[in-house]
Design a protein around this nucleic acid. Sequence first.
DNA 1: ATCCGCACTTAGAATTCGGGTC
DNA 2: GACCCGAATTCTAAGTGCGGAT
Length: 776
Amino acid sequence: MLPWRRFPLNEVNFAAQKLAFVIKYSSLIVSSGKIQDCDGMGSERVDTEGKARNKEAKMKRRKSDHGSTRAGGDAIKNNKKTPKTREKTDLGESHKKVMVFKSENLDSTISASESVKETDNDFSARKGLKRKWVQDESMDSSVIPTSKKIKHKLGENSDEERKTKKSNKKMQKKVKCEDSNECKKPKRTKGEIEEARQLKIKKKEEEEQSRWRWWEEEKYEDGVKWRFLEHSGPYFPPEYQPLPDNVHFYYDGKKVKLSLAAEEVALFFAQMLDHEYTTKKVFRENFFKDWRKEMTDAERSLIQDLGKCDFGEIHAMHKAKVEARKNMTKEEKQALKEANQKIVDEFGYCLLDHHRERIGNFKIEPPGLFRGRGEHPKQGMLKKRIQPEDIIINCSKEACIPVPPAGHRWKEVRHDNTVTWLVSWTENIQGSIKYIMLNANSKLKGEKDWEKYEVARKLKSCVDNIRSQYRSDLKSRQMSTRQRAVALYFIDKLALRAGNEKEEGETADTVGCCSLRVEHITLHEQMDGKEYVVEFDFLGKDSIRYYNKVPVIKKVFKNLKLFLENKQPGDELFDRLYTSMLNKHLSSLMPGLTAKVFRTYNASITLQEQLKELTNKSDSVAEKLLSYNRANRAVAILCNHQRAPPKTFDQSMATLQSKIDARKEQLALAKSGLKQAKKEAKAKGSSEFKLQTLVERKKAAVKRCEEQLLKMEIQATDREENKQIALGTSKLNYLDPRISVAWCKNMGLPVDKIYNKSQRDKFAWAIDMTEVDFEF
DNA sequence: ATCCGCACTTAGAATTCGGGTC
DNA sequence: GACCCGAATTCTAAGTGCGGAT
């Protein structure tokens, strides 16, 4: 690697540092406790008008910026902002990040872009491929239930094939029975349980065999997502059931019988009464406004004050219903489960290019009160019931078009194979479009996912150049270029999101990199013994707080100082920068490169490096898994994936601790037992066979005890470290699964130690194709 | 050139499942 | 067999970014 391509030394996160961090960060997180409230930072929020003015000014500048050459010379004098006191956001116990990693540049490896080939679209050739597939891995539609019409399309495999397959399965089952003890110990309720278990195993095998190995097929021509698509349409939630006669709503102490529409909305509110939402002013106001819209004139003139409404009985009824559900008999639960399964069978699958694919969300979202995240201005608004007349169906021309519910018709039926959705509707809160799409284990999603990681790998080979480019851009004479360079520095180093512009008043006030405001950063020439520290404090996606103190290079620091000149807290930090410009620039550096690719790249490369550093082949399984989780955790911290600590966290930790203590006692007991046995054996001479075996047995007991203790202790460490960190998001969306699969192979671990069933399904392509020596 | 609608990914919370324990 | 708890799944909000209309 050429020296000039590298980050200067103070930027490189050395392996030793990182290792120390990983070992240390657990204690940091554990000991950090509560973070200060944002408002404690002395930052002020500007009123909406102020922000709107800002935006306007930015728009004007956007037009004139071309001519500007002197950096900072044309800084805008901002309008005076009127600060507004804002309701405090309860951020809960989020962890304080003390250090964030940066991945060091690795020697570039040219990535395998060949996997994303775009060629032959000769359908007959493809057909041949497919036919081959059908023969090789016939789908047994008699086992996996489908809706009628989908089933008949599936009937491509001959009975003969089916028979052979079945007999194969029988053989497999027999073998299994012989070498496992499953057959030997029939359980209490044996018959049924055993049968169910066998059925499950069988189903699993079937699934494995019927998996569409799309990654072995050629890709379609650009833009074409499918050639044939058939489905049963959406599943609608049940109609509203009026309240029983003994449940009443009271207004101002008097019983009021509400109209059906008003009653339904009242129930939405009553259901949420235990939730904090219903105490919030904005929520209550929005709800009340929308509720009144649903009332009859008479109701509207009577019910004027939400405070006088008594939903007590409705709330109690709802709670009783929930309780009753919990207390259902086994038979009732079983019946319910079967009914649900029937719905899944009918609506949960579609047929896409001769393959049966699972749909991700085939149920229409039921009506209710909108629950935004954070301080959402629209929280509490009524989310309306979706009618078939709101629904657009997308499927093949040749397919059976799903039938709308009786007496209804679809808004539209279209046949657009350049999109992946099956059903769409427009939601009434933001006016945005909602879609029904395929499950994550589908070809459509999997292929895209694979492609995403290939783009990120491509970035690996040119990231050095890009870094040196934005570093030299820090000195650019053009203000917008400098801002772009600093933003890129943050996006790369801190894995910040792009930060698109948002419509004022439509959503919670959250920001990403390009939309950062002056109030979100504080500059410290010196802090905690470090130079040029930037302190970030803002709410990001989902109103999750990002708090971090980061030492930056001098040039970045000086630029930030410049950007802050003559600005108010509510002004934009990067007033000359837009995500569109940034992405346009990035795509000129590398095709397909956008801001979010950096997140994927840095996440995956961090995982790979961490795994390399943290794991040894000689470690025990539990230790390996702890290391894997720690590597995963390092990524989650980098990407700021937080979660509310589980409600039962303290309790479950205590339980685990008491188990550990008990095990320790047991171990001590086992040890003294061993000692005693050894003593006796020695006294009676080694000829005593019985005593010798006793010693061996005791030894084994001690060893077992020790192992179990270690395992539990590791589990406790893992859980403690994970208190407020969510691993799932990075695992599912940012970490190239091939890194994990290769690691498993290297470590001699089965993949199901790190991926559960649905994760294995989602990453089937990676599990199938990854070799031990895979390098991201 | 800019805006905006659209499509699709990413996100944490809520709910449900299922296996272990008493 | 009831109950409890962590894991898995579901749900849907909230982002990103492309590309066509203007």
